[in-house]
Amino acid sequence: MAMKEQAPGRCPEVWRPRDAAEACRLKTAFGPDGVFTAGGTLLRTQWESGSAAMPGTLIDLTAIPGLAGIRADEGQLVIGPLVKLSELMRTEAVATAFPLLAEAVRRIGAPSVRNLATIGGNVASAVGDALPALLVHEAELLWHTGGRTETTALEDWLADPGRAQGVRLLTGIRLKRTDAEAPGGPPGRIVGAYRKLGRREAFTPSLVTIAVLGRLSEDGTLTGVRMAAGGGSAVPMRLRAAETVLEGARVTPDALVRVSEAVLAEYRPASDAFAGAEYRRTAAANLIAAEWLRLAGAGREGDGR
């Protein structure tokens, strides 16, 4: 049974469920007035700015065993949603197998924020800066939905994050080394990059985030090409048309122009008083193209020429 902790003043009631099923039962019981929380960093900015009211009830997930920690086995990694961003950054298995994710997380907030914020919250927000990196790694989300566990591709979930009916709790983020990423796959080497554009050099909300990943063969041909972009209040998305341009192709100036055009057409950026959509579109296209140019060049250098 969860312990109910009564807080004084206007603080919400805090419930601490012991397992996912209890968390879902609490959420069902409280409805919109009960809000899941772990690090609470995003919620606090929303309360402070007035963009969301402080709820009557917080359902604190941090006491649930099994939601923490990172499990690696058989070429896959399951990241518990309670894993702090700072822990994720420091985890060797993440840094070696999924460096784009480590880089993305390193660019979120500041150390004090990363010591509190969880990867689960970043994902569940649907606008977290880690998402483009997770998208190009084709992450899957594991959910507890009452009695059973459900798996959804991250890309599918992001297509409409509010779509799912009923109460569900994120219990894991699964990253598999797919064919394009697995060692011993087709010839060539895995290349990838993550970039975040903000309004200052560090500790900044994102304007644009991009991630690219692919396999570069010795002759400069790319396969398994994946690209994603997000940033600000934009829900990150795979850039399928841009991927098609480079799939099986080489990084030429002409290809870069066509990739950029595809990004400009396909990416749906946010817009606010600080940066317009047109600027963000252009920046996303430029950053993606420049990263491919750099990766292709580095790939050639890596051949020992």
Partner: peptide, 15 residues
């Protein structure tokens, strides 16, 4: 920055 950003076709033509 929107005044200083370059359009893709300009950038990659330069390359």
């Amino acid at each position: 920055p929107a005044l200083l950003i370059r359009k893709p076709e300009e950038l990659w033509k330069a390359v």
